[in-house]
Amino acid sequence: MANYSIKDIAQLSGVSPATVSRVINDNGRFSEATRQKVLAVIQETGYQTNYSAKSLRMHKSFSIGVLVPDISNHFFASLVQQIEAILFDQGYSTIICNTARSSTKEQAYLQMLASKGIDGLVIISGPQAFDIEQAALPTTIPYVCIDREPKQRADTVFIAANHYQGAFDATEALLQRGCQRPIMALHAQLSSSGTERLHGFQDALKKNNRTFDAQTQLLQLTDTDRLPKLKAYLAKFPATDGIFAVNDALAVELLSALTQLGQKVPAEIQLIGFDDDPLDQHTTPTLSSVKQDLTQLAQVTVDNLLKAINHQATYGKSISIPVTLALRESTK
């Protein structure tokens, strides 16, 4: 394959080398027609940018680190996939780090990312506030947080779906459909998004003149004891007729457990989750859920990170992404 230079691409495209450079770096003014013409020539010739030289010249690695707690979770996986696709279109490669909710693993990944000279960092979810200083990362690395409170709010942008409103609406949906004693099922450890969902659940009860009792209306479940704990809970509180699960992964497991226990959904217990996993449409009955706008969440994240990298960001702000209800057969 012949080695083409930017001058060659410019000549074949009928534009100046400066224009070719602007198209490659997606920086500066040029028409869409010009962009398409240059990109077509690049594809035809197999031209490849010398990223090593480009990195040295611009003091950039053109790589972004993404820290995610559980890549097997559909919501996280889909969000990361969309973020990666947008970043790729902007000329950045993505290093995806699955922490498995381990603080030790998270710290090791952060050190690795710092050694690679990443240009920016995306932090997704987690039970504790993200502390850039404790992470021992250079404070010059721009970062944004999704669904995870940053300890140094003035140094970043915090982006999250409206978890509070989603939980509030989900709880009201149960009440409006006749539930007299709805409960919330959640994990032992809550992220900042989980805490917001809990607050939404509590306030929906309050608005509808229902008392909230953490001892009797919160069902905390670990990974190992879900079926026996649910069985014991329902034996103790047989009037339970609605469950708002903190996420769909837990809701799907509860749906299976309720079936095993002979509980009819939604006739005896109504169920609603959070995240609108595609699996929700294939359960029996299909699962009601709160839908997050993944596309908007990913785009807003990348937009703010790139602004931070280019020293154009407005730090210290929080961005809330709206949610909607997707009601299906598990609610009446």
Score class of each variant (00 low, 15 high):
Ser16Gln: 04
Pro266Asp: 06
Ala135Pro: 07
Ala114Glu: 12
Gln111Gly: 13
Thr211His: 07
His163Ile: 08
Ala167Thr: 02
Leu186Thr: 09
Asp8Cys: 03
Ile96Arg: 07
Gln43Tyr: 11
Arg57Gln: 14
Ala129Gln: 15
Met112Gly: 03
Leu175Glu: 03
Arg328Asn: 08
Cys179Thr: 02
Lys307Ala: 11
Tyr47Ala: 00
Ile183Lys: 01
Ile269Tyr: 01
Gly194Cys: 00
Ser78Arg: 04
Ala136Gly: 12
Leu305Lys: 08
Leu121Val: 06
Ala160Thr: 11
Asn208Glu: 04
Asp131Cys: 05
Met58Ser: 15
Leu230His: 03
Ser55Ile: 10
Ala40Asn: 04
Thr140Ala: 14
Met112Pro: 06
Gln111Ser: 15
Leu39Asn: 08
Ala249Gln: 10
Ser318Phe: 02
Thr284Phe: 11
Asn209Lys: 12
Gly28Tyr: 01
Ser192Val: 04
Pro138Trp: 08
Ile123Cys: 01
Ala154Leu: 12
Ala173Leu: 13
Ile9Asp: 01
His282Phe: 10
Leu205Ala: 02
Gly46His: 03
Ser5Gln: 03
Lys116His: 14
Pro69Gln: 04
Pro278Asp: 01
Glu329Pro: 07
Pro285Arg: 06
Arg101Met: 10
Phe130Asp: 10
Ser193Pro: 12
Val80Asn: 07
Arg197Asp: 01
Thr211Glu: 08
Ser318Lys: 13
Tyr92Gly: 03
Phe158Arg: 05
Asp277Lys: 00
Ala53Trp: 11
Glu106Gln: 14
Thr49Leu: 10
Ala136Gln: 15
Ser55Glu: 09
Thr284Lys: 11
Ala167His: 03
Lys229Trp: 08
Ile9Val: 11
Lys7Thr: 13
Glu329Arg: 09
Thr156Trp: 11
Ala185His: 02
Gln296Asp: 15
Ser191Lys: 05
Ala114Tyr: 09
Thr295Lys: 15
Tyr233His: 13
Ile6Glu: 06
Leu87Thr: 04
Thr171Val: 06
Leu198Ala: 04
Asp276Leu: 01
Leu230Thr: 00
Arg29Gly: 12
Asp277Met: 01
Ala85Gly: 13
Gln11Ala: 12
Lys116Ile: 03
Ile321Gly: 14
